[in-house]
Amino acid sequence: MNGTRDVPKRRGFGSRVLEKMVGQALLGRAELRLEPTAAVWSLEALHAHVVGTEA
């Protein structure tokens, strides 16, 4: 096995969660790219929205 795989032709529930729901919940933007050798997920959001505030 050479470490590559076929990239799926359609996106499922997990892809939607990682991109839309997480991005919206953190008031930012998330992107999931599926490549033959890796899944790459990126998140762009304000630090305060990701870590929250201390009580």
Rank of each mutant, 00 (worst) to 15 (best):
P8C: 03
L27T: 10
R16E: 03
T37L: 13
L26Y: 00
L26F: 00
M21P: 08
A30I: 13
D6E: 10
S42H: 04
L43Y: 02
A25D: 10
H47P: 07
E44W: 11
A55E: 14
V17Y: 02
G14L: 13
G23M: 14
V7Q: 09
K20W: 09
V40W: 06
S15H: 01
V40Q: 08
A39K: 13
R33E: 15
K9A: 04
S42N: 13
G52H: 05
L46Q: 14
L26P: 12
R11F: 10
W41R: 04
N2G: 06
M1R: 07
A45Y: 09
N2R: 12
F13Q: 09
R16Y: 08
Q24F: 02
D6H: 03
V40N: 04
F13V: 13
G14E: 09
L43N: 05
V51K: 12
L46G: 08
F13M: 11
P8V: 07
E31L: 08
A55I: 13
L32Q: 10
K9F: 00
H47G: 06
L26G: 02
L27M: 11
E35A: 04
E54R: 11
G12E: 13
R10S: 15
A30Q: 00
A48I: 10
A38K: 15
S42C: 13
E31H: 05
D6A: 05
V22I: 15
G12L: 13
S15V: 07
E31P: 06
R5Y: 02
R29Y: 05
Q24S: 02
R29H: 08
H47I: 10
E44M: 15
R33T: 09
A30K: 02
E19K: 12
G3V: 00
E31Q: 09
P36Y: 03
T4V: 15
S15G: 02
T4Q: 12
E35R: 12
Q24L: 05
M1P: 01
